[in-house]
Amino acid sequence: MPRRGGGTGTGRIRRLVKHVMLILVGTVMIYPLLWMVASAFKPDALIFRDPSLLPTDIDLSHFPNGWSALAHPFSVYLLNSAIVVLGALIGNLVSCSMTAYAFARLRWRGRKVSFAIMLLTLMVPIYVILVPQYVAFSQIGWVNTFLPLIVPKFLATDAFFVFLMVQFFRGLPRELDEAAKIDGAGYWRIFFRILLPISVPALATTAIFTFVWTWNDFFAQLIYLTKPEMQTAPVALRNFVDATAGASWGSLFAMSIVTLIPVFIVFLVGQKYLVKGIATTGLK
């Protein structure tokens, strides 16, 4: 089918109108973020008087001030977040891929029932298991450690990613496994040497979403990490709101930006996988 509207006047105008609309919507959406960045470089007195993005008067003190505004330097909270994210990342990659391989490729008794249960756990609101989980973890002394945030990830409890990888493995040709089996390879060998190396897209999508969700996660970190030295960046940032009580929006914005930068970098690097991942499974 030939593309229409190549050179005609109305086609060009229509396209122009479209682009103007798209740019307008995009600007409205991104403006608050840019305004936050600009505000972090403005003197406090100017933040709410000057909505423009280019500061007339640059103030670089917000970053060092914000960094040391709480009980510990902000690096402590960022490091805590990084530990939790790294643990969750490794846990999800290992456990979800193992589970997905068994679901997608092996025949065993109870597979269908287990798969149905796995799908069902996707629907369970997190709050219904959080209270007993909290009770259990506090009884074994795991409150104010990173364990409640990391250990469950090693048990394939993020059913989303199991599902994502099952879908991916099912799309791979079975001949790969069969050929390896004829060559005498066992199941673990097939899994590690054949399937995982060609599953980089699914693993990358899992890694990226685990990173973003765990980095942004607030509820679990809020209830489990109450000691200042154990707190993660989101929890610290939230305490910062109370601590400053509006005294210095500049420092608050500066630290907000610091917590957003890792997600932004992952977004830039991993866009390709993000878009594919959402389109195939409907992840957030």
Binding site: S95, M98, T99, Y101, A102, L106, R107, W108, R109, R111, S114, I117, M118, T121, V124, V128, I129, L130, V131, P132, Q133, A136, P152, F154, L155, A156, T157, V162, G186, Y187, W188, F191
Partner: peptide, 25 residues
């Protein structure tokens, strides 16, 4: 052999379902 491999691969998930999901539920 396939069954055994599957159960080993599924072990973390089973533990997770019992201890982290259905148990607390």
């Amino acid at each position: 052999q396939e069954e055994r491999a599957a159960w080993m691969l599924m072990a973390p998930w089973f533990l997770g379902v019992v201890a982290v999901t259905l148990g607390p539920l």
